[in-house]
Design a protein around this nucleic acid. Sequence first.
DNA 1: CCAACGGAGATTTTT
DNA 2: TCTCCGTTGG
Length: 774
Amino acid sequence: MRIDERFKELRDYILEKQYGHLNAQQREAVLYGGGPLLILAGAGSGKTTVMVNRIAYLIKFGDIYNSSYTPDNLTDEKLEALEKIANLYKKTQDIDLELPDDIFGTKGVSPVNILAITFTNKAANEMKERVSELVGNTADHMWINTFHAACVKILRRNAEELGYTSNFVIYDSTDQESLIKECIKEIDLNEKYFRPRDVKNHISRLKDELKTPEDYRKEVAGQYRDEQMARVYTLYQEKLKKNNAFDFDDLINKTVELFYLKPHILEYYQKRFHYILVDEYQDTNHAQYMLVKLLSDYHKNLCVVGDDDQSIYGWRGADIRNILDFEKDFPNTKIIKLEENYRSTKTILEAANQVIDNNAYRKAKKLWTRKEEGDKIYLYEASDEWEEANFICGQIQNMILKYELNPGDFAVLYRLNNQSRVIEETLIKYSIPYRVYGGYRFYDRKEIKDIVAYLRVIANPADDVSLRRIINVPKRGIGAVTLANLEELAARKGESLFGILIDMEEENYDIGRGQKSVQEFGMLVSRLIAIKEVMTLTEFIESLVDMTGYRDALNPEDPEDKERLANIDEFLKAASEFEQSNPEAGLVEFLENISLISDIDGLDEGQNALTLMTLHSAKGLEFPVVFIAGMEEGIFPSARSVEEEGKLEEERRLCYVGITRAQRQLFITYAKMRNVYGTTLFNMPSRFLDEIDGNYVESLNGSSMSRSIPSKVSNRGTKGKREFTLGEKVMHKRFGIGTIVAVTDRGDDSELSIAFDQGGIKKFLASLAPLKRI
DNA sequence: CCAACGGAGATTTTT
DNA sequence: TCTCCGTTGG
């Protein structure tokens, strides 16, 4: 055999062994050469492992597996060294050999030439860390970023090309909404008919599809409502630019625009990124698809990882077709399916498979596991949401005692955030420690947004939206009229509000009654800008909080204000930490960090507490024991989703995501009766339950298990136990005083007919009606 | 300019 | 039912 043939054989053998800890498909995905690669990674199939190892493989050895590569000066000695290693592998199984990086005489791909994109900071950080574990800190030179962070990097460098300056700020959805409100007012549209929130979402979807205001205007010509929408969109974009601000969608959008506008910039990045990897590809929208397509168009080494069955963000603009049609969009695509699941029991996995099998729009695949059969899926029918919570908590308490589990082993998942309230209250009764994820974010708090608005104005004086937010916060006597005068003047002079403030004295502007307050405010801002130069970031923010009077406006005796003060301190802590870990960074970078890193990552991670969160937030996570609560028609699937097959399929995927979060045990509960927004609903059990084979399910109603629940905690005070008698006088919160004219027994509850003094007889359930005895 | 009232509205949210 | 806004009246 020729020496180079032997080399290739040994090379590939050693590489296979080097990744011998992976299963065959995972290994194939790691070692597969360049060109478009679609890795369909089912839930719990080890996709992060694959991505991380693929990156490490490229960096260590380069893309040499199954290639024609042989070293230039291949000698017998070199070959012998390889033979030795191969023999080592042959003799022992499971050997973990640390190979020298240049063992095959290659340099490997430089980390600089690799781009890895994720959706969340959490995923990006995890990937960074795990790659570093394998290749050391050379990974620092690699771009492992979220879509948004990667785009910001590009935009900061090239902002001028788009008519922005590099100190641009990023608007979050609140800022977007206030700007849109402004546009709606300016165009004189009816806010009832053009609700800012809806308009915002509409524009956001247009941006996802890379439609410019102009595109859209042409597209909808002749349709009144959409035409107005196009006008708002046009104005909105103008204002964003005037404010030197991008919204989240723009970050992607404008980067693509930049690439179209300036081919040489695109070319630079195209040539730079030899290998591109995209995580959670099923969640990409059209703009992100385009970005990735453009960037990979030169080297064509695009590897995407995702699971069409876990595409649950269609409503946010994610286009599942990106993953479904990947091989059509990228010719010569290699598809590798990771179908072995390392997470759940056979029962859980089988149930998940059965549910998802009802979807038409998906890639054929079927997860399997070597794991044991495991317990059946436990199903419980509760009478109402309180009893449901009670059941869940009782089970958890039992299992903690019986199986020595910790609260941290459990998660309760639900479709709607507001379902958490009842569960929380019940958890408190049971003294089970818990953490609620999602909902309100730290940086969304009013006091934090206020401080951030100050900082933004200082970093980017063009930011009228932020200036408007804080010009009278805390109250300094600049009301609507004064502000309107200011705005009018700014518009007339073609200046930003900030510019007017600064030029106030010099130009002898007359604002009217608020003149003095405005002047003082202008001086305050000037002073802030001055002291910023001589202070660290943290010192500066601290001074800002004091000098603006923000701190003084809060009363430490008031519990709400006390909380605010604590949050401001927390914010200062975050600033100081940021400074420490980014000594080079300034205010602009800090603000960017705030915008892109939404919550303090892994704040309480490792705390031994039960997890409460929506099914959406649970994607990517796993727990030994999972409860899915509120499995009812109208809740899950949500009432809004059942009209459209596409939406229903997304709900079903969400259900699939939920089921596959569970490692060992899965409990599903539903309530016969549920109070939603003040009205009582009698929902049917979810259709998704019918899709699971009954053999996999064990009903806990009336079984010994449900009777072993610890002493029943009463249903929310007197609810459900309230007895009313015929002829009694009662006070109803809405209908006023009335007399009970009939009481009908309804099992645990009773139905009351009440004749109100104001007229009319109405029927209520005793447990639910807001009634007081008088 | 501010606080108090009342009506509408209320999925899911990686950035 | 609860919360957020915009309006209103002082």
